[in-house]
Amino acid sequence: MIVQLDNVRRHFGPVKAVDDISFGFDRGTICGFIGPNGAGKTTTMRILATVDVPQAGEADICGHSVIDYPDRVRQRIGFMPDYFGTYNHMTVWEYLDFFGLTYGLHGKKRFDRVRRVMDFTDLKPLAERDVSDLSKGMKQRVSLGRALINDPEVLILDEPAAGLDPRARIEVLELIQELAANGKALLVSSHILAELSKICDEVVIIDRGKIRLTGTMSEIRHHLRSGRFKRGSAADGDGATAKKVTITFSKPATDAEKLILEQPGVQEVRIIGTEAVVEHIGTQESLANLLKALVTAEWPVVGFKSEQEGLEDVFMAVTEGGLE
C-alpha cells in the first residue's frame, strides 16, 4: 500500500476528531473519503500531508512515516487543502512558477513542469490572469495544478468538487480520473458519496472520527443489491438493511412522530402532512413490528411502502445511524 494508516488517533481535547482509524490504498487508485461535516476528514488529510501529527498510530506514505520523515513525505505528495491560498498581483503562470521554485525546481525543468501542469489542467488560456480574480472553478483548477507541480506520487485532495457548478465539477472529477490512470494514488474527500461513486475505486466512510464503512465501490454496490452492508463499527451482520419507509395515514400524522421514533431501528422521521418518511435500519421483522405498533395504537394507516436505499441513503444510514 502506498498510503497506509494504522490506528491513527487525533483528539483535540475532548473532541475525538480522528479516533483510531486504519485504511490504505494503492497506486492508480482513487480512494473516496466520505463523511458529514466535522467527521474528521480534514484532520486525517492534514496528518497525511504532514501538517499535523497523530497522538497514536502510524501513517506511512511511500513507506515513509509522516511523523518521522515529514520532508521525505512532502516531496512525494501533493496536497490540495479546503482553502485556496491566493496572492495579490500574481498571474496564474507566476503562481505556479513560484510554487515550482519553492520545490527547488530550476531553469528549464521548472519551465517545462509549469507548462505541463497548465496543459493538463487546461489553464493555458488563463496564464496571464490574476489568481485573485479567478472564479471558484478556475481557482480549484489552479489549486490542483499547484498540488501537481512537484509531480507527486500521492495526491491528497480535500473536497475538490465542493461549491462547483455541475460542469466544473465534472471537469475536476475527470482530471482526477486521468491522474489515477497515470498511476497516481489519490485520496479525495467529499460530503457526498454519489458525487464520487462514479470515479472511486475504493470508499472509506467516516463519521465522528470513526470509520463506518470501507470497501471497493463494487462491494458497496453488491451489498446494496443484497440489501445489507458491512458496518465499520457495529458488528450486526444479521441481515440488517437500510430502508426508506413512507407511511401514509388518513389524518395529519404530526402526533405519530413520537411513537414512530420509539420503535427499534427507526433513525429519523420526517412528517409531511399525512405522510411520515422514516429512515429505518433493521431486519424485515423489525419493519413489520413498526407497522404492528402503529396499528396497535389505532393509527389509521392507509399506506406502508418501503424502498431500498440508494447510495446517498446508505451514506445517511451509515453516518447518522452509527451511534453506539
Partner: peptide, 17 residues
C-alpha cells in the same frame, strides 16, 4: 498577514520552504 489569513504559509511549509 496575507500569508497567514490565506493560509499560504502552510502550503509553503509543505512545499519545502
Amino acid at each position: 498577514a496575507k500569508e497567514r489569513t490565506e493560509n499560504t504559509f502552510e502550503l509553503l511549509n509543505i512545499s519545502g520552504l
